[in-house]
Structures are given as structure tokens and as C-alpha cells.
Design a protein around this nucleic acid. Sequence first.
RNA 1: GGUUCCUUGGUCAAAUCGGUUAAGAUAUCACCCUUUCACGGUGAUGAUGCGGGUUCGAAUCCCGCAGGAAUCUCCA
Length: 483
Amino acid sequence: MTKRVRTRFAPSPTGYMHIGNLRTALYAYLFAKSQHGDFILRIEDTDQARYVADAVDFIKNTLAAANIVPDEGPGFGGDYAPYVQSERKAIYKEYAEKLVELGHAYYCFCDPDENHSTGEFGGYDRTCRDLPQEVIDEHLKNGDPYVIRQKMPLSGETTYFDVLHGNITIKNEELEDQVLLKRDGMPTYNFANVIDDHLMGITHIIRGAEFITSTPKHVLLYQGYGWELPVFIHLAPVMGKNEDGSVSKLSKRHGATSFNDLVEMGYLPQAITNYVALLGWNPKTTNQEIFTMDELIEHFSLDGLSKSPAVFDYDKLGWINGEYFKAMADDEFATLARPYAGDLPDNLAQTWPKLAALLKTRLTRLGEVRDNIAFLIDQPEFDADLYVNKRNKVTPEKAKELLPDLIALLEAQSDWTNDALYAALQEAIDARGLKKGLVMWVLRIAVAGQKVTPGGATELLEILGREKSLLRLKKSLDKLENM
RNA sequence: GGUUCCUUGGUCAAAUCGGUUAAGAUAUCACCCUUUCACGGUGAUGAUGCGGGUUCGAAUCCCGCAGGAAUCUCCA
């Protein structure tokens, strides 16, 4: 019988969810769920200097928005509570002392400012290893502050297996006697992580590649206690592209780097999750790219993970987001996009559902809504050259000639819906033996004042409404006549 | 600087055990459709970092090099 798979996501509460972190959480979740296992949320708040209020709620809200649902964690229940490390302080102390007894750790009473590193790039002295027992007892009796350090082997090497990278070996002499228990009684990441992963029964550790080189230290801890090793999976980082074309780990200078930044820009949470899933993982057995969470779970497997870094690409995210827009019902999209339109004049507020339907296939994110409709709120000043169109043989002169007739025709039109307008114009076009493209182009430019528009001439007329449309057309004609 | 990891089109990426015309997507461009644009359709451009080796045959295995990244906190 194989052991039930248990993975975890262990963020520190900084009030910020980096895309790379979200992806790590997603993969851990997908793997657990694909194996019918458990996904645990654990808060690693052992750095008291970095404490941020409400950050735990922020993490929970973000996971909820991304549709990642922990089975256990703070507020989620579970048999291994507490899931917040600051509430587990006593546990770490107990295990640190146990490790001292086992001979794999020792007390150090040095001043924190004069640590044991020597030189810019490491170098290390281990003098505190040799403190006589009576000196240690004396310090402890006096209540002097101390840290507990891990006693690394001085020779040999430590090897562990990583699912993505195979065996990774590091010489033990490279390993410093890292601090396990800090002066304030809190554990360090490297210690608390191991203790909790073991106590919480984590079977697969899925985390960022930045931990590859510290994992041998963890392995030595597991071995020190005689504990079974979990399976390690170190994910390649998410990169951002710099202006000079080089890449580096995704950071602020690349624009948005957090899940919430992207949501604010108008990317849908499910589209972000979908895109991020594909950024370093590939489903192998299908070329499908648009996935629901259930489909991701169904297709997920570790051998689809990529071991090389992936560059975050707004173009692809925008395409995926656009696919989600197109898959939506018109009214659903209209409701969703409405807040991004801002204040609207009455005529547009009334026809918003129709306007939204036109925008639906044209946007990569909701943040583009306002720019796309600005010409409907205030008619732009435009040059007569805009009337020029080769395919339909349109010129400003031609427009000046046609507009009076078209305006008269529209003034006689009472049914101001797209279909009725189209039919009326079609009839006039046929009667006069004109080209449809010519008439529609002239009308569209005259009413929009912009070369590229969402929707065609009659659609824009309907959305603007009878009154506003006629006003605009007359104004545009005036301009042509006064040139 | 030491250590560790990584390297297939601009980007994401596929390619059982070494045999493919080196998939697919996006982006870009062109054409078709069309009431402009978009959507949709068709097509085009574009890649195995470099140098050796093993082999009938290398993206794939080996060696060297180069480039990139991460790490070297009483941060996580």
C-alpha cells in the first residue's frame, strides 16, 4: 500500500503573492489532488521583523480567488494544528534540544553581530563546537541568550534525489553550521521546515529551485533524527524579460509580479491560474491549453514539469484571458466589464450590454475597456484624411458629397436598432447603386472620429443613440464643408 | 569568487529505448471572410548555444567550453 500523498504550500505572510509562489502552490495542489491526496497550507511566520497585519487572510483570499482549496491549514481544520509556525515555538525548542542530545547540534553564545562567517563569500569558523560542557551549563544557568547551530559533518558528501534534477550532491565541507534556533527562540526556515514537514506527514516537497542548495542541510537533519526523507521537487523559477532582452527572476521592474496586480489589470483569476499552470508544465498527452481547475487536476503529472526557467509572457496571458472572455455569455461579460468602463453618459449606460458585446472579442484584459470606449464619450478631433480608404474608394470629398443625403435618411429613421438601421441603409444603397463598404465607411468615420473602432457603423449608431449620432454626423459634415 | 542548477523559434513548449520533414500554441506578417477593427479560416517567417567525440544515424549519450540563473542571513 502506498502512502497517501500530502503536499504543502508554506508561504511567509508578507501581504504579497508573487506569481512564482502562486505557481508553486498550484503545482503542489494539483499534484496532491491528482493523487487523491491532501494539500496543506502552513504559515511560516518565524521572522518577526517581517510581520504584516492581515497577511494570513490575504493569503487565504488569494488562494480562494485562484480556486486553490487547502484541506488543512489555519481556519481549514486538520489533525496537525497549529499550522502557524509562531504558534509552534515550543515544538521547535524541544526538537532542537533533542538534536543537541543526539550530537548533531550545539549551543552558541556568540554575539549575533560577530557571527561565524569570515569574508565576503562565506568561509566559516566552528570554534563554538568545542565549548566545554561546564561553560555551556554556566551560560544556560545565567540565562544568557543563545542560538542552537547544526553540527555539519566535516567530510564526505550529502546526496539527495530530486524528481526533476536527479541526484544532487554537495560536499559536506561546503555546509555551514547553520542556526536552527534563533536568539529570540524562533526557529529558522531551514529548521522549522524540516520539523513541520515531518510532523505533518508531508510526502512530497514542491518548492522553488532557490532551495536546491540548502536541501542537503535539511537531509542531514532528517538523517540526524532518523526520519524518512520526503520526495523533493524543486521547480525552476519564473523569469521576467528585461528591457535589454536579458532575463532575471520575475520582479517589480518587469511590471506586475503578484496575482493581485494581474487581477487589478483586468485578467480573470481563472485565466491567470490557467496561464501560470502552463508556465513550466505541459500536459504531454494533449495540445489543449484552456483548462478548468478540474481538467488541470485530471491532466497533471510530475513528468510534465519543466526543469528550465520560464519567462512570463503577457502576450500569452492576454490570449488565454481573451479566450475566457469569448467563452462567456454576453451579459456575464457585460456585468464583469462594467466597473472598468467608469462613469458613462446616459446614452452609453443604457446601451452598455450591446457595447460590451462588441468589446468581448477585442480585449485581452478588462483594463483596456475605458481606452476602447473613450471615443464614444467624447468624439475625438480628427483629420479629414481618416475618410481615405482605398479598398472602398473613399475620399474626404466623397464623404462630403454623401453625408447630407445619409443624414437626411437617418433623420427619417425612427427604429434606431442595429438591424433596422442596417436594413434602411441597405435599401438606400441598393436604390442609389452605391457600394456598401463606401457608405458604411463614411458613416463610421463621421460618427466615431476614429479609424479603428469596436463594431461597425450601424452598431455604433445604435450604441450612441439617435440624438447623439445625428449630432456627431452633422458636426462632422460641418467640418468637411468648412475646409 | 566557491557551489549548484539550467540551455529546442521572440515567448511557452513536444519529440518512448538514439532513427520525425524537429509537433502544437502564442507573437509577427500575408491572404480569405467582413460594415473598419476584432472574431473565424488558410498560409508564411522563425529553433536544437559552441567545439569535439561515440554511432550507419545525435536535440537526445560522453567530454570540453560559453552563456544564463540560483545560492553562500540569527530571511523565507
